[in-house]
């Protein structure tokens, strides 16, 4: 079958006149299908952001290749690159780096305008994107009056208005408060579920990664593990080696198991832990 995004033995080396070359990506093989809901976790400096910039050709691999629906991001045809950037949208950590207009709806319209979309269609797309992210009521607001979480939703709406097949978000919640984090995560779930858009979400927060259907762990420029969350998060040794946290519920379940209590396998969420404890208690 055709993959949406395909990394084939991709490597990337940063070269600078100040420091020795650093190989940030080593032999990455990664495939993303239509409609996937993927989280990538890893410590600072593990190559996550370098990887993210390969998804739509902001960086191209030093060796190997990255294909977006079969087209190489290293293609020299500007039309093909344009198509790639439209199909795979990017959202960065700090929305202030990404928002360029002063009014919400103008910023969301910027992408489709530059794609040469007819005005009526732009209007339709902007309204749709604002509604999908629940920020329609702020459409005429000045962006500087919004909270950081709302700004991040505007940045996502701007990408959505370009009708992408996939949205890649590089630590979009790192600077947000818990409420803003929840808003962003819930919006992405909805886009994935209702519009079938593939989401690649890069994060440090394990409590966020547990919400995804697939989790890839990066460390030292390699993908160390890739699978469903209940599989990944029970590999405590791997996560600890990468300096990552294990979700609190999983840690508690593990500790209780160590004390001889027969806990259910694969506990990740608070509800699962509480249910397992209820069952246990009713048997005692």
């Amino acid at each position: 079958m055709e993959y949406l995004i395909e990394f084939k033995e991709a490597t990337y080396t940063y070269k600078s006149s100040f420091v020795d070359p650093v190989q940030a990506l080593k032999q990455i093989d990664l495939r993303v299908k239509r409609g996937e809901f993927l989280a990538i976790i890893g410590p600072n400096g593990s190559g996550k952001s370098t990887l993210a910039r390969h998804f739509n050709g902001l960086l191209t691999p030093t060796t190997g290749e990255v294909l977006i629906r079969g087209i190489s991001t290293a293609s020299s045809d500007p039309e093909q690159l344009k198509a790639i950037r439209r199909q795979v949208g990017m959202v960065f950590q700090n929305p202030d780096n990404q928002l360029i207009s002063s009014i919400v709806e103008e910023d969301v319209a910027f992408g489709p305008e530059n794609l040469g979309v007819p005005p009526k269609e732009i209007r339709r797309r902007v309204n749709h994107a604002l509604a999908a992210l629940n920020i329609f009521k702020y459409r005429r607001e000045s962006i500087s009056h919004l909270s950081e979480g709302q700004k991040q939703l505007v940045a996502i709406a701007g990408v959505l208005a370009m009708k992408p097949d996939c949205i890649v978000l590089d630590e979009p919640t790192a600077l947000l408060d818990p409420f803003g984090r929840r808003q962003v995560l819930e919006s992405l779930k909805k886009l994935n579920r209702e519009e079938g858009i593939a989401v690649v979400f890069i994060t440090h927060f394990m409590s966020e990664a547990v919400h995804f259907k697939r989790v890839a762990v990066m460390d030292q420029g390699e993908i160390k593990s890739d699978g469903p969350p209940d599989d990944i998060f029970t590999r405590t040794a791997l996560l600890k080696a990468a300096g990552l946290d294990i979700p609190v519920s999983a840690q508690l379940a593990e500790e209780l198991k160590g004390k001889g209590f027969p806990m259910a396998p694969g506990i990740l969420h608070v509800e699962e832990l509480v249910n397992s404890l209820c069952q246990l208690k009713s048997k005692i």
Binding site: D177, P178, F179, S207, P247, V248, S249, L252, V270, E271, L273, V274, L277, C278, K281
Partner: peptide
Amino acid sequence: IGLEPPQVIEIMQQLREKGF
């Protein structure tokens, strides 16, 4: 006010809601 208590506290809270 939109803050989340630490997860350990959330777990204890839910256990209390179940009557423990």
